[in-house]
């Protein structure tokens, strides 16, 4: 079973990111689960969301304590909470930052750390500092757990009703992150 934990702040689409991972994995033929850590979602407050991907049905409801993949949408969280708790030397870390990975203050093997300037891509492609979908492009590339095609389909399923241009912008942002 693959377990993913996402850290971010209220308003950054943390929960939506976990849901998109589950929908994309489901589109790829996996069993999948996504849920938030049930916070009162105040803008700017630290938020966690979880996703699980497996070939069998997923029954456990406990939070993700030992993630295989750690996604950090906001690098300022590194100084306030222990985002690396429960991670091991194999955990893949995807982090939104302008810094090179040597300068990321997280005690995990550098070879597993993938840094992406998701904020820049989000501003360029979506026109807003909402990085959740951008990071998912990097997630698909770094982990191979979901295909780009399924992720794009997930975006359509999730945002399709809202408007077409939003879907297009997000898909462009994901592609840009994936092809970096």
């Amino acid at each position: 079973m693959h377990q993913i934990r996402i850290h971010g702040r209220g308003g950054q689409g943390v929960v939506t990111a976990a849901e998109l991972i589950a929908i994309a994995a489901f589109n790829d033929g996996w069993q999948a689960q996504a849920f938030p850590s049930f916070g009162v979602e105040r803008t700017g407050a630290p938020i966690e969301a979880f996703a699980r991907i497996d070939k069998n049905s997923i029954r456990t409801r406990e939070h993700v304590y030992e993630p295989n993949v750690l996604i950090i949408q906001d690098a300022t969280l590194l100084s306030s909470i222990d985002v690396a708790r429960g991670c091991d030397k194999k955990t893949i870390v995807i982090i939104n930052s302008t810094l090179p990975k040597e300068k990321i203050k997280i005690k995990l093997p550098q070879k597993n750390i993938f840094v992406i300037d998701a904020t820049k891509i989000a501003l360029e492609e979506i026109g807003k500092n909402i990085v959740n979908t951008v990071i998912l492009g990097a997630f698909a590339k770094a982990t191979g757990l979901v295909t780009l095609k399924s992720l794009e389909k997930a975006i359509e399923q999730k945002f399709g009703e809202k408007n077409k241009s939003l879907v297009e912008k997000n898909i462009n942002a994901i592609r840009k992150a994936y092809n970096l």
Binding site: A18, E19, A22, I23, F26, Q31, A32, Q33, A34, F35, P36, F38, S57, I58, R61
Partner: peptide, 12 residues
Amino acid sequence: IDGFVLTHTYES
């Protein structure tokens, strides 16, 4: 149904 644990969880 368990609030959040089921109501806010995505699964098949």
